Simulated scan of single mutants.
Amino acid sequence: MTRSVLYPLRSTDTATVTYSMHPHGRRRVTIDHQPLAGVTPAMLLDWFSNLGGTIAYGGEVIDMYLAWHPIDHIKWELARSAPTGGAAEGARFHMVEAFGARPEYLVDEIARVEKLDETGIRLVLRVAGVIVFQLEHTWSAGVEGAHYVTVMDLGPRAAVLAPVNRVLRRRFSDEKARAWVKHNIEEVGQLEYLLPQLEPSGETEPAQRAKGCDRAPYREHRQAEPVN
């Protein structure tokens, strides 16, 4: 299903991207994003803790995950609740998306949430107890808005598993990695528009919003409307 995109998608040149290779053929991609104006760490924690919710978007109510990237995101569900309940540390997220809406770049994975707090979220995929994929988003408060960094690690660390890394690099090719980078920069940029309109969590209003940001905060239910 094609959905309208209410807000401008960030271009790849708005972030600093680093591709690196590590021992035994592991790959790492680091994305240092342009600050998210009007966004605080508490707002980001709330977003990821309630990712299964819905939001008013373009005149209809849709899943928050679909509003997060209207083109690439297909499905999100809580495959398993955290020991404390809901989407918290120990939960398992089932995510389906296609980078650039291209079928050959489809991802359908269940990852364990090994960290989720006001400093970030870490998602890990293990096979036979061995970490083969890790995606970590870290954030902190900044003068211009939230400082947000994404790091993806692909491949196990053990030398004996180097052949596995070769297989993973073929399955997650350089082209697919670049498509994922574009996707990630776009989805993170959308948070700058979506989060300031959600229900206030009670924290001090960010200075950059108080200085005249025209995004009206949400009052009665989660909503997202175009910014003039």
Rank of each mutant, 00 (worst) to 15 (best):
F93T: 12
M95D: 14
V96N: 04
E97K: 12
A98L: 01
F99Y: 13
F99W: 13
G100Q: 00
G100K: 01
G100V: 00
R102H: 09
R102M: 09
P103V: 03
E104Q: 15
Y105D: 11
L106F: 03
V107H: 14
V107F: 11
D108N: 13
D108Y: 04
E109S: 12
E109D: 12
E109P: 08
E109L: 14
I110S: 13
A111K: 14
A111D: 08
A111S: 15
A111N: 13
R112M: 10
R112C: 04
R112V: 07
V113G: 01
V113T: 13
E114P: 09
K115N: 05
K115M: 09
L116R: 00
L116Q: 01
L116T: 00
E118N: 11
E118S: 12
E118G: 03
T119G: 08
G120A: 04
G120Q: 04
I121G: 07
I121V: 15
R122S: 07
R122M: 01
R122C: 01
R122Y: 02
L123F: 06
V124P: 07
R126W: 07
R126D: 13
A128I: 08
A128W: 06
G129P: 08
G129D: 00
G129W: 02
G129T: 06
V130S: 05
V132G: 08
F133R: 15
Q134K: 15
Q134A: 15
E136S: 15
E136A: 14
E136P: 06
E136F: 04
H137R: 11
T138L: 08
T138G: 07
T138P: 06
T138D: 09
T138C: 07
W139M: 10
W139H: 15
W139E: 04
S140D: 08
G142I: 02
V143Y: 06
V143P: 06
E144I: 01
E144F: 06
G145Y: 01
G145K: 04
A146Y: 00
A146M: 01
A146D: 02
H147A: 11
H147D: 07
Y148I: 03
T150K: 10
